[in-house]
């Protein structure tokens, strides 16, 4: 074989139709494969079943972590929660993550507008007009200036953080205005099971959009506590994982890997950086046949000698 032919043999292949052939029943192969896959699936389903850790409700949140509900409602009023400070696509309170000079969320704009204080707390509370304490608190809130509202809510938020277990009953006295009554009302709404519907039904009679109750739940610490206990946290490689002893999405290993190492693990823009890197790597993966060095790599690895070891085609 000439030097040219040797060099080319890594990327060039003769016409497969020119080789001697052997009988090969593709249809039989497929039918057997289908049977094997079906049996393996059914056996695995019967033996291992599948995980179904039931959804958290705002009602359960209120029952099991009432102080977290109060702290979260106060945070929404103070404008300090994740949602309240998010930026696009929910509001304009931040720009969102940047990739160099490009801020993609800002370009996409606010497509699911959310006013955290009003959508999550004030508007639902207006249905509690029969409660005189809440009605009075709402009147006081409405008549106050924006600065005053924020000052009350921020002060109460700080006081809750300083109280033992964040217990509203143990908060030091201070100028919190109507905020404690509003937060207490929010807890009552959540406990009654009404809050979920009040938060989400504003968009549609048919409850197919779970965005707002999910964002509210995620603004607290309760959801994350449950997730971390199941090894689902971002720094636990949680994107790959499933609740209980079940395999999850192990094929996402590379995506979650980047979040574990610098510079991504310490970056404020990690999400967009990891996304950009993964898109680049994915394009590279698709284009392996055209990348010099990579496309000839398998020839040097030698595994092909084990696959084609019969030599009957020569």
């Amino acid at each position: 074989m000439s030097a040219t032919a040797t060099r080319r043999s890594a990327t060039w292949a003769p016409d497969s139709h020119d080789f001697p052939t052997r009988r090969y029943d593709l249809v039989k192969e497929f039918v057997i494969a289908l049977g094997v896959m079906l049996v393996l699936t059914i056996v695995a389903a019967l033996v291992f079943s599948s995980p179904d850790d039931s959804a958290l409700s705002l009602e359960r949140w209120a029952q099991e972590a009432p102080n977290d509900v109060v702290a979260t409602a106060t945070g929404e009023l103070a404008g300090t929660t994740t949602t309240a400070t998010y930026g696009p696509p929910y509001n304009t309170n931040a720009d969102g993550q940047s990739l160099g000079p490009v801020v993609l969320p800002k370009l996409a704009g606010v497509t699911q507008p959310i006013d955290a204080a009003n959508d999550f707390v004030i508007t639902p509370l207006r249905t509690l007009s029969s409660d005189p304490a809440v009605a009075a608190a709402l009147r006081q809130w409405s008549s106050a200036s924006a600065d005053k509202r924020t000052a009350w809510a921020q002060a109460y938020s700080d006081a809750l953080a300083a109280a033992p277990d964040g217990d509203p009953a143990k908060v030091a006295s201070g100028d919190y205005g109507p905020v404690p009554a509003l937060a207490k009302g929010e807890l009552a709404l959540a406990s009654s099971g009404a809050l979920e519907g009040l938060v989400s039904s504003r968009t549609s009679f048919f409850g197919t959009d779970s965005t707002k109750p999910l964002l509210l739940l995620a603004d607290g610490t309760y959801l994350e506590d449950q997730a971390r206990a199941q090894n689902l946290g971002g720094d636990q490689w949680g994107i790959m994982n499933e609740t209980g002893n079940y395999p999850g999405q192990p094929w996402l290993w590379l995506y979650t890997f980047w979040y574990q190492i610098p510079p991504f693990s310490t970056s404020d823009n990690a999400d967009v950086q990891v996304w950009a890197l993964m898109i680049l790597l994915s394009i590279g993966f698709i284009c392996i046949p055209w990348i010099p060095g990579l496309r000839t790599l398998p020839k040097h690895l030698g595994v092909h000698k084990l696959i084609w070891r019969g030599g009957r085609w020569r």
Binding site: E64, N67, G166, D225, Q230, G244
Partner: peptide, 16 residues
Amino acid sequence: MSGQLVTSTVPAGAVV
């Protein structure tokens, strides 16, 4: 808020 409250009915899986 201090202290994690975990109420899941499903025990967490083993981790390596």
